[in-house]
C-alpha cells in the first residue's frame, strides 16, 4: 500500500507547532511516532494535506517526578523511555504494567505517550484497506452511512484500543493541552467522549503536551491485565487496570478500576471505589467488583473475538487484578 500525498511540517517549538495546527486546522494532523498514523494513512482512513511532525520536540520528551508536582510525562516521550525509567515500576506499577503490553518492542521504541493517549478508535470494519472497505460500501465512521456492528444504528462503536489510558485513569491523571490561546488542563476522564467517531475532546488546533499524575498516587499497588490473541504485538481485545492503596492491616484505603477496549472510550468502573474502600480482601468482594466491571464494559462485534468472551474476560481479569494487587501485594513499592 502507498501513502497519500501530504506535506510534512517540522516545528522547532511547541509554539511553532500550535501555530501550524491553527493555520491548517482540518487539513492538518499531528504525527509523533507514526505507529498509528502511518498504517491508517496507508489504508486511506484519512487524507490530511499537512502532517505536523512533533517527534523532534525534545522539550516534550521529559519524564520527571517530584514529591510536590507528582509525575510529569511529556507527550513525545517514547513508551520504551517510560518503561526504562528506573523508578517507574516502583512508583507507578499499573502504568509500567500497562505500557509494557503495548504492541511489541519495535513499536514501543517509536510510539509516544501522546500518540497512545490520542489513538484512533478501532473496529474490524474500519481498520481495513480502502479496497476492502469499498466492497462493503464503507461504514458510519468512513465513507458510508451504515454501521456493520449495530445495523440501523447511527452511533459508531469503534473501540478505544489503547493500553496506557486505563492505567492513567486508575491514577487520576490530568492532561496538559496547548493552543495559540495558552495551555489548559483537563482531567483524563473528561478527555474521552465515548464516541467511536469523535473520540477525544481535542480541537484540531490543539496539541497534547503532557500527562500528569498527582504525587499522592506514587507507590500505589497496581497491575494491568490484557486480553489479546498473541502475547506480543496485538492490540487489546479487553483490558483491566487496577491501582489501589492498602494499609498495613490490609484494608483498602482507595482504589480505582478502569477498562479498555470494550467501549469507544477507556472507562472507570465508578462503583469500584465505594465497594472496596474500608474493606479487607475477600474473593466474594472481588467478584462483586468484577460484576460491576461487566456492567461498565459493553463489548460489541468490533474485533475478531466475540463480545461474550471479551465481556467474560473483563470479569475474570478484574477479579484476578484485584487478587494480584490486594491479596498478593503485586506492584507494591
Amino acid at each position: 500500500m502507498t501513502l497519500p500525498a501530504f506535506r510534512v511540517l517540522q516545528p522547532r517549538t511547541v509554539e511553532d507547532a500550535v501555530r501550524m495546527l491553527d493555520e491548517h486546522r482540518s487539513d492538518a494532523m499531528v504525527i509523533a511516532g507514526g505507529t498509528d498514523v502511518i498504517p491508517n494513512l496507508q489504508m486511506r482512513l484519512f487524507t490530511p494535506r499537512v502532517l505536523v511532525d512533533v517527534k523532534p520536540l525534545r522539550e516534550l520528551a521529559v519524564i520527571e517526578f517530584s514529591a510536590r508536582q507528582g509525575l510529569h510525562i511529556g507527550a513525545t516521550a517514547t513508551l520504551t523511555h517510560i518503561l526504562e525509567t528506573p523508578w517507574m515500576r516502583d512508583k507507578f506499577a499499573v502504568l509500567a504494567s500497562a505500557i509494557g503490553t503495548v504492541a511489541g518492542p519495535l513499536q514501543r521504541n517509536m510510539g509516544t505517550i501522546g500518540g497512545n493517549l490520542c489513538l484512533e478508535t478501532r473496529c474490524r470494519w474500519y481498520n481495513q484497506s480502502h479496497f476492502w472497505r469499498q466492497s462493503l460500501g464503507g461504514c458510519l465512521k468512513k465513507d458510508g452511512d451504515i454501521c456493520h456492528v449495530a445495523p440501523g444504528g447511527k452511533f459508531c462503536w469503534a473501540a478505544w484500543s489503547g493500553d496506557s489510558a486505563p492505567a492513567f485513569l486508575a491514577l487520576d491523571a490530568e492532561l496538559e493541552i496547548a493552543s495559540l490561546s495558552g495551555t489548559r488542563r483537563v482531567p483524563l476522564r473528561e478527555f474521552y467522549k465515548n464516541d467511536g467517531m469523535d473520540r477525544i475532546a481535542l480541537a484540531r488546533n490543539e496539541l497534547l503536551t503532557a500527562v500528569h499524575v498527582p504525587a499522592h498516587m506514587a507507590g500505589r499497588r497496581g497491575v494491568y491485565q490484557k486480553l489479546r490473541v498473541r502475547d506480543s504485538i496485538d492490540y487489546p481485545l479487553a483490558g483491566v487496570a487496577v491501582a489501589m492503596e492498602v494499609d498495613s492491616a490490609g484494608i483498602c484505603k482507595d482504589a480505582r478500576v478502569a477498562l479498555s477496549a470494550v467501549n469507544p472510550a477507556p472507562m472507570l468502573v465508578t462503583q469500584a471505589g465505594e465497594s472496596l474502600i474500608g474493606r479487607k480482601w475477600s474473593l466474594e468482594l472481588a467478584e462483586r467488583v468484577a460484576h460491576a466491571a461487566i456492567q461498565t464494559g459493553k463489548p460489541l462485534t468490533t474485533s475478531g473475538s466475540t463480545p461474550v468472551y471479551r465481556r467474560d474476560m473483563v470479569r475474570v481479569f478484574t477479579r484476578r487484578a484485584l487478587e494480584e494487587t490486594w491479596k498478593n501485594g503485586h506492584g507494591s513499592a
Partner: peptide
Amino acid sequence: DSSCGCCAVLIDGTPMLSCVAL
C-alpha cells in the same frame, strides 16, 4: 499493518520499523 518486524533497522542504535518512518 506494521506488525511483523521484517523492516526493522537501527536508528541511533535503537531498532525501529522503517515501514512507519517517513
